[in-house]
Design a protein around this nucleic acid. Structure first.
Lengths: 133, 133
DNA sequence: ATCTCAATGGATAACATCATCCATAGAGAA
DNA sequence: TTCTCTATGGATGATGTTATCCATTGAGAT
């Protein structure tokens, strides 16, 4: 549904959201989430540039979720890695369909798309925290 | 959302569903739908093997939609090119989430997934026909 | 039989995504 | 300063998807 990389980003943020009390090594995130360490470093780098994550080099360093990232909708994360989705585009790539000239799937898809958008804008990074059962 | 190739397949079937009165050249489909002609031939070949489309070589030949394809759900087409989707998989690749240990997105996604499945099994190839306004 | 039309299918190339390797830079410890 | 730890970033490789090229096959027209 979304790219592997986006999935990595969400998992990473979920892990950081769960451990906000200290600096987390990239290596630790990789081990705990199963994301390839080398690739993860690229993902973390982008999350840092985007301001979702803070980093500290050297001994005792690592990564941390930034405070204001907690309330950030996950839509922003997905867009960062998958690019902005064309909200208008027919997911089937059918010839231009819109309200005036709908393809057979248009109306049904319109509704589903709305629910997905609602989910992505409502759920925040902070809510990716792995809570106690 | 789905692969480019699946989109091509749906557009192709839509075009064939709209012109059921004669044999349609692959070239014509390519021109009218904007699908690369050479690549389209592969897609058509798979549609033929799957029994959705009939072909005729030589002068006056081309492609035609098969009668029974009209009532076939488009889900089958998507699975043909994208492979069967893992219905259980969390679209975010988050650590195994299920009813017992749901990720924050689980419940919301469950519902959306149901609607998508419903759409894909309900809409048929015949309904891809480009009807008169 | 021969010619032309058009699908068929194998081989290959272009491209993006995913992943790894390695050298460098920054920061605290000794 | 010097050492170790750890993020940073450039270069490269692996893989899957998308696209193209070309030779072959089948079928009707003449």
């Amino acid at each position: 549904m979304w790219s592997q990389t986006s999935s990595y980003a969400l998992r990473t943020l979920g892990y950081l959201a769960t451990h906000r009390d200290r600096w987390i090594l990239g290596k630790e995130i990789a081990e705990q989430t199963g994301i390839p360490a080398n690739y993860l470093s690229k993902v973390l780098s982008q999350l840092r540039k985007k301001g979702l994550v803070r980093s500290l080099k050297g001994w005792g360093g690592g990564f941390q979720l930034r405070e204001d990232a907690l309330s950030s909708p996950i839509l922003g994360v997905l867009e960062l890695f998958d690019g902005a989705r064309d909200a208008e585009a027919c997911p089937f790539g059918l010839p231009r369909c819109d309200a005036g000239n709908p393809c057979p799937l248009h109306a049904r898809w319109e509704r589903i798309r709305g629910e997905i958008d609602s989910m992505l804008t409502t759920v925040t990074v902070g809510q990716l925290r792995k809570g106690p059962a």
